[in-house]
Nucleic acid binder design. Structure first.
Lengths: 211, 211
DNA sequence: GTTGTCGGTGTACAGATGTTCACTGAAAGG
DNA sequence: CCTTTCAGTGAACATCTGTACACCGACAAC
């Protein structure tokens, strides 16, 4: 069904390839709308398999969604890794982070769009999974922030509060970039978030945690 | 079909009542999931009318969605009005605004949830309508901010940048409140956003616009 | 009091949906 | 080589989908 140029494939390889095709087809099909509006048969048609073959890989659209959550957060963790690297290399943390953000969103527009949408509109279990993953990101970022200059007097709570704000802004920016096609509008978005983070950082440098 | 206690109704009144019932049924039905996953027949069943009667009021789920956008943003503008009033009455702008936010989200959880979801997952035209409305809110807030203390040296652009950040945080907070049922978790959310806004305000008070 | 307007009804249809079941054929394993 | 495993097939099902159509009956207008 799936045409390979040549080369014999093991059964496991073929299965994996079909699985990938299902994941990709799903990302493409729900690029606008949502998982909850997606039918198993649409996915099957897009992949080029018969509807029932879907069950060989996932037992529902919902569990397919959970697999996509994992995959999408791999992309997001990649982003975090890059941000961390840029934070060391670059003098200006803000610019480095935003560049990394834009770069990763461009590369995996599908993943970031998926998270943005299903985070609020997906099936309950998918929403919960995304919520959990985002909390992990916030915690991870909080420990990174603790290593930065000037936060040595901060309480753990305040660190997490700040981390959560960064993640909120990050998610909102990713959302905006995903949902715009025009490059000049994207520059606008980037310029805006850059200023916003600078305003915020001024506050951060002055902040002293209470008792 | 719709049982009224007594009192004769004019035809126009009855029609309006059915329209309301459709709007309410829709808000209830897509409370989790999304408009794009909602069928005309589900709505009709919930309202207690036959599917074809739906067309007497809207010609598609999409145009129904547009009506709900308008209605939902009436709620949001109410919130803005209250925030503005609290800003004058209260010494602390942050606490007043957050209280107003929490209050309005509680009162119209359905509207705020609707905006949060359809903003990213609704039909294209609905997403665009919401985007336009949010931009209006940002502009409105920007002119309010211009009247506040310390922003007299700010450029119009910076005012809009800040306004946009406030709206982002506001939307994210509303989203979180809508999607949590546990009151103690809500207190957590509120406490977090309060600290976040305070951190930000420190930066704002020190900010000087460039050229 | 006749007539027209118009929410709402009921039937009907072609197509899409999730899931079942028995099947095929090629790779994997003995 | 023979048997098992298993990804993918194809037909069948009951149910749900949007929409077209002719119809009804109460209110509105004259």
């Amino acid at each position: 069904m799936i045409e390979t140029g040549a080369e014999p494939e093991s059964r496991a390889e073929r299965k994996l390839r079909t699985r990938r095709a299902i994941l990709d087809a799903t990302l493409e099909l729900c690029a606008d709308s949502s998982l909850t509006a997606l039918s198993l048969r649409q996915v099957a048609k897009q992949v080029g398999i018969v509807p029932t073959a879907f069950y060989r890989h996932f037992d529902s659209i919902e569990s397919l969604g959970l697999a996509l959550v994992e995959e999408s957060f791999d992309s997001l963790r990649d982003l975090f890794r890059d941000v961390r690297r840029n934070a060391r290399a670059d003098n200006d943390v803000v610019d480095g982070s935003i560049d990394a953000l834009v770069d990763h969103v461009h590369r995996r527009r599908d993943h970031f769009g998926f998270i943005a949408r299903e985070r609020v509109a997906g099936p309950r279990s998918v929403r919960e999974a995304i919520r959990r993953e985002i909390e992990l990101c916030e915690r991870e970022l909080a420990t990174d922030l603790a290593l930065m200059t000037g936060t040595d007097t901060w309480t753990a709570k305040d660190l997490h509060v700040l981390s959560s704000l960064f993640v909120t802004v990050l998610v909102a920016t990713a959302e905006q970039i995903v949902s715009t096609a025009r490059p000049e509008q994207e520059e606008q978005i980037v310029a805006t978030v850059r200023t916003q983070l600078r305003m915020l950082l001024i506050g951060v440098y002055q902040w002293r945690s209470e008792a």
